[in-house]
Design a binder for these strands. Structure first.
Lengths: 195, 195
DNA sequence: TGACGATCTTAACTTGGGTTAAGAATATAG
DNA sequence: CTATATTCTTAACCCAAGTTAAGATCGTCA
């Protein structure tokens, strides 16, 4: 399968984008590869591209003014959309860094082209709404994890729900994602050996 | 001003709904009043209505299986939309309770009628997208509060950004919203007298 | 006004994460 | 295969929030 065929298949699954609607977008997709540590989008940059990850893992993180350390907000991996959603839809500067944690390959489309597609096709409009709902779900899940769960529960749920992330990301990044320091994660892991 | 004129004005401000587009919706809005403690939508219920608050304050809360106590997730007040967003857009059972904290008045519209409006008018489609973006922002802000701020910082930001809520809601509900117990909020308040 | 219920604060103790720094384990490259 | 860097764990101490229960304050209504 070619890369655009993979994309077509994924978008069909996600939003019912059929071959005809997909063809409308064909001229717009561009491919880019990222090395480990390269940025998809940086702090204070306006995010102009919506990316589809063919391969690799990205992380979005925030830099705390006071503690000066990085706090991981989202991980994005293979067959997912990568985007700084708020910055993308409002075309305003981003509060986060989004960087590749591995060698990655992405197909991406420019915001202007996507808006053209929205105007041309109901299929694509539907896609836009579903991306919005996906973004909402990601954000809401994250809020719920922190509001209702302990760090230990978040750790267990990450292993259960996102083994792909757990198995491919160093523990100090996991700790940051869980909202705790590395030593605390070690303690949690030790605590659980008995269970 | 009549109540529908208030609504028309608010929707115009929010999403550029003009008089003509608003008229399309006119037959669909219904008014309802809620007493203190009455539910807008309950746990396991599918949320079928999108409400616009003419007056009053609502809270959305989660009941923790283990601790068995209520955790406040959102407050909604005058001139805002009240809805269990995820349940509403997916028409699936809600994980939360949404109840009126005061005597409240709401104009609401049924999900089916709203979908009709989406099909009929680009203005309303735009409204739908903006509601999605608002929901995303609420959820993302909530996630950020918990990921990046201490309880003390959340408390100060609530006072600064939502004095209307702070001034109209008992402290034990505020504590729950901030993700802490009432005694902890008391300690924070005491700590800050000196500052 | 006085009494009751609701709300808020305080105290004493427990618990778990933060912090810092050291050392162990694991990868990676030469 | 060793040297080096990276990642992970551990220890010791600190501090803030949780928990529970008691008491103070505030509101409301008979």
């Amino acid at each position: 399968m070619t890369e655009t065929q993979i994309l077509n298949y994924a978008l069909n699954q996600f939003a019912g984008i059929d071959a005809q609607a997909f063809d409308l977008s064909l001229p717009y997709w561009e491919k880019k590869t990222y090395g480990k540590g390269q940025f998809y989008n940086e702090y204070k940059n306006v995010c102009k591209y919506l990316g589809f990850i063919l391969d690799g893992v990205f992380r979005t993180y925030y830099i705390d003014d006071e503690s000066a350390d990085e706090k991981n907000v989202f991980f994005f991996s293979k067959n997912q959309v990568v985007v700084a959603y708020k910055s993308f839809v409002t075309q305003t500067p981003c509060s986060y860094y989004t960087e590749s944690m591995t060698e990655s390959t992405v197909l991406y489309i420019h915001v202007n082209h996507l808006n053209e597609l929205y105007a041309k096709s109901h299929h694509w409009e539907r896609f836009g709404r579903l991306v919005a709902e996906t973004a909402f779900n990601l954000a809401m899940n994250r809020a719920e994890e922190f509001m209702f769960r302990t760090p230990e529960q978040r750790y267990l749920e990450l292993i259960r729900n996102h083994p792909d992330i757990f198995n491919n990301v160093p523990l100090y990044h996991i700790a940051s994602y869980l909202g705790i320091q590395a030593p605390s994660l070690s303690r949690i892991r030790k605590r659980m050996v008995g269970k």
